[in-house]
């Protein structure tokens, strides 16, 4: 299954980024954290606190940049991101468990 939103044209808005997840591609903005946008695209992501302190939403960041509006309390492993509070800053590729 591939999800490509045709309604938004990335070239018109430089704040829209592509998130690659396996064969899926999801378009996200910098307005909200990644988690909520993935959920809206119908992708289940593990979560608990949704506030950056439990690390349940940790997913692999294969390449690309994310930033955190506040420093999360949970430890962020290198090569991972915390979906509940990460703001996507470039096109990125993510992965769940191997």
């Amino acid at each position: 299954m591939t999800l490509i939103s045709k309604s938004t044209n990335p070239t018109k808005n430089d704040k829209v980024h592509r998130v690659l997840l396996g064969k899926k591609q999801i378009l996200v903005t910098e307005e909200e954290p990644l988690l909520i946008q993935l959920e809206r695209a119908g992708i289940h992501v593990e979560y608990q606190c949704r506030e950056g302190y439990c690390s349940s939403c940790s997913i692999k960041l294969l390449w690309g940049h994310v930033s955190y509006p506040f420093e999360p309390l949970a430890w962020v492993q290198s090569g991972y991101l915390l979906a509940c509070c990460a703001i996507v800053k470039s096109d990125i590729e993510i992965a769940f468990f191997d």
């Binding site: 608990q48 302190y53 439990c54 690390s55 349940s56 309390l73 949970a74």
Partner: peptide, 10 residues
């Protein structure tokens, strides 16, 4: 508990 486990993870 979510906070505690973050403590031991750190």
């Amino acid at each position: 508990e979510a906070l505690h486990l973050t403590g031991t993870q750190h």
